[in-house]
Simulated scan of single mutants.
Amino acid sequence: MDPIEIREAMPALESGVYCNWGAGGPSPRRVVAAAESALEHHEYEVPAAEGMYPAAFDVYDEARTAVADLIGAEPGEIALTQSTTDGINRVAGAFDWSEDDVVVRTDLEHSAGILPWQRLEREHGVEVRVLETVDGRLDLADVKAAAEGATLFCVSSLTWTHGTRLPIRAVVDIAHDAGALALVDAVQSPGQVPVDVREWDADFVVAAGHKWLLGPFGAGFLYVREGVERDLVPAAIGYRSVDDENASDYRYAAGARRFEVGTASPAPYAGLTEAIDVVEDVGLETIQRRIETLTDRLKDGVPDDRLLSPPEYESGLVTIAADDPEGTVDRLADRGIVVRPLPTPEAVRASVHAFNSEGDVDALLEAL
């Protein structure tokens, strides 16, 4: 399936130029239809048939399988969440933290990878080390020094500030050699680049479907490497967390399921499953090639002193220096062009997907 066929089925792209996929990706009609259909089926048909809970569980199972297939995992290693932030907090809440523990993060993390650790620092005295970077790049010698004595290392696969692709396997290996577990915020990766959690060897990978995957808000996922969960006790518990909710002495469910809690609407997860089908119908290789072509076109039109992302392709995220980021975003919005400002560096960020057109890129460059 050609990306333009999908574009033509995305109402949000019918007017204006949308270049903000790194924040949220509008869904095609078939994704919204899948979510609507799941909700109608759940509310209209199954109450007097198989029952609302079994029907929802079927949707959850389908979503776990779809996510697992997408990222190279097993369904039992996938917990369904609401978002990336939700997934990171579920991991953060499962450790027995003390003042002896150390969390390492980079200075390239989104607030989802900052606030949970600040809270641990404030409430449990956990040491939080912030690994400084230059132009969206990590120095592996600095990674090794920061990881010494750490409990957990948090790093993004693609940086939301520069669009750089970080050497995740190397970072994870360093963390493991230091005795730390590794958590990867991968939310900018699925849907625009292939993801293989086996290749990364990370202990936890968090992401969500509402950006590059074209899914609806409310459908996130957490990968937990098999066996890692056995020493963790999630902060929240519910009937989806345990083997038998009616047992007098509860036992956590095997695998990542212990990180799920209670009732959730099946609609977002049905939408996520359909969105993954859309991406797979187009093909990740096709998507990646088109993103590369479009971002090359964009970067070629940006002055060298304004381009803060790498000149060569690494992702669809393109950061452009601006003297007044908020004002620039507002000015572009007046012309029907959607990008976002960044808090640091002082810049605007355009995120270009395969479903953009050459005309979109040219309009953005002209407006800039």
Rank of each mutant, 00 (worst) to 15 (best):
V172E: 05
W117M: 14
D203I: 03
F95K: 09
E148Q: 11
S156L: 02
A170R: 13
T164Q: 09
D196E: 07
D201E: 13
L183K: 06
V104L: 11
F95L: 08
C154K: 02
A147H: 06
P116R: 03
A182T: 02
T159S: 15
A170V: 01
A182C: 06
K144F: 01
A175Y: 10
A112H: 06
A170W: 03
L140W: 01
L183A: 08
D201T: 00
N89K: 10
R169K: 11
D142M: 10
H124V: 00
V128Q: 03
A186V: 02
E99K: 02
I114N: 12
A112G: 12
F204M: 08
W160A: 14
Q118T: 00
V187Y: 15
H176F: 06
D139A: 13
W200K: 12
R122S: 14
R105G: 11
A147M: 08
E132Q: 14
V128I: 06
A175E: 07
D201N: 12
R169F: 00
V193N: 06
G125I: 03
S111M: 09
V103I: 08
D107A: 11
A145G: 08
D135Y: 03
D142N: 11
L138S: 04
A180P: 07
A146N: 04
H110K: 08
T159Y: 04
V195L: 15
P190N: 13
L181N: 02
L181F: 03
V143I: 05
R122A: 15
V103L: 12
V155E: 05
A175W: 05
V126F: 11
V205T: 13
D201Q: 10
D107Y: 11
L181M: 13
L115Q: 15
W97M: 07
R165L: 09
A175C: 09
D96F: 04
Q118V: 01
T151R: 12
K144M: 08
G179S: 14
V104T: 04
L183M: 15
V102F: 09
L120G: 06
R122V: 01
E127K: 13
F204Y: 13
S189W: 04
G179P: 03
